[in-house]
Amino acid sequence: MIPQTFEYTAPKTLEEALQIIAGGGKPLSGGMSLIPMMKLRLAAPDHLVDLGRLKDLHYIREEGGALHIGATTTHQDVASSALVRGKCPLLAQTAGGVGDPQVRNRGTIGGSVAHADPSADYPAAMQALEAKFVLKGAKSERTVAAADFFLDTFLTALEPGEIVREVIVPVEDGSTGTHYEKVVQKASGFAVVGIAVRISRKAGKIVWARVGVTGLANHAYRATAVEKGLAGTSGGATEVQNAAAVVADGIEANSDLHASAEYRKHLAVVHTIRALLAALARTA
């Protein structure tokens, strides 16, 4: 499988990269989605702009109560980072389950978010974390919340010429328990359904819950009805089951050879219960 011909540039600076992208160049990060698409000739960009070598996009740092992660930070680096594991365990757990070890060595957080595959793992965590994305173009920079970023299958709020420059996720406090639970598609490692959960419980009562769902719909979403059903309860088994029952309500579920829409909805409920119970077990 040989892709169509293209021009390749590995810019030395982000500014240079953004200039070429503004002129129609296609950003390449880890290439774990783009290269297979090019090999299948589902994508045929004229000009690839390799962001993978830009050292100033590869970082994880804590700043102002949040973690800032550069776009070309690999899944492996997110999953193995002591900072992420300690302060945003949901993201570390999610990153550690993407694809397989070889894919995690090359694939990047910015690339995955920008690609917005409806079965990708990261978007579920991004919704649950209420992450923010710094989007940068040659002459612009803006910050967009995850809730406003994922628009449709492979469609995001990115404008032509913009890249995801940075991902911002919160630092969890001691009251929070988190978990990511997915039904894995064995060959690819993608999520048939994936549920990312954060729960804050204080003095035995759930203060708030955040539930991100991937694989089920055309893009990852926050199951706010589940969140509302949990708030104020103690998080007992029946309360969790009742709250999780509505996770797929009103959703037009995906259907493919891995799972029918009906089965996906069933999986979503079952795995929301499991994710909630696992996250609750991690709360104080």
Binding site: Y8, G31, I35, N105, R106
Partner: peptide, 9 residues
């Protein structure tokens, strides 16, 4: 790092 050389130029 282990990589899949079919998915890298």
């Amino acid at each position: 790092k282990a990589v899949k050389s079919c998915t890298m130029f």
